[in-house]
Design a binder for these strands. Sequence first.
DNA 1: ATGGTTGCCGTGCAA
Length: 261
Amino acid sequence: MKIASFNINGVKARIEALTAWLAGSDADVVVLQEIKSVDEGFPRDHFADLGWNVETHGQKGFNGVAILSKLPLEDVARGLPGDDSDEQARYIEATVVGDRAVRIAGLYLPNGNPAPGPKYDYKLAWMERLRLRAAELLTTEMPVVMLGDYNIIPQPRDAAHPQKWVEDALFRPESRAAFRAIQYQGWTDAIRIRDPWSTRGPFTFWDYQAGAWNKDDGIRIDHLMLSPQAADLMVETGVDREARAGEKPSDHVPVWIRLAA
DNA sequence: ATGGTTGCCGTGCAA
């Protein structure tokens, strides 16, 4: 079972690029972030005609997450638990049954800039809710893949120029500590352990501004976090870097994992 | 150091 995450930065603006990438990938399950669409506006029929089951958790104008799956999706849950007053659409879960049942948690973690400030406070509060949900997911002892745009640069080697990010919400100590607090519950950072001694990258995001892609001025903020039961099934993982060079690209590229499930 | 881009929607905001 191949599982991917792709922050597409607008599903309607990206429908051609996304369709082309899906056709060239053999992904079975894809979580999307920043669909920037309400549920009714999502081009559901377009993807259904291509054989995808579609579950969305959308919002007007910004945010919004979705799951596309070739396999049936069961027990779909929308929204991150822990704050009924939170209106932002950033989290969706579902179970995919291949050879094994795998719980998928697709997330779009708040950016948090400018920091400090209310947006940073929201980011950290959201991460505390995610920590609690992640702990619950581990107790199921299922293979769980918790993946998406975390908006966290875990370590200096995850940025081309880490000194540029020291004041940024993606790299501030509190953000990184909150990420570690989740990771050290027992989650495996699939892209990092693919090349554990890398001193630079791989990157998953390059800003549209200032020629960041041409200078390879990237950061690694899209992550695949695996429960122990999922990590045991891991056979391959990758970053589809070439997607950033295509026509009308997203500023993120897909990250993926293949499980023996 | 500064300025640099894109998407949603029809303007300023979010990233």
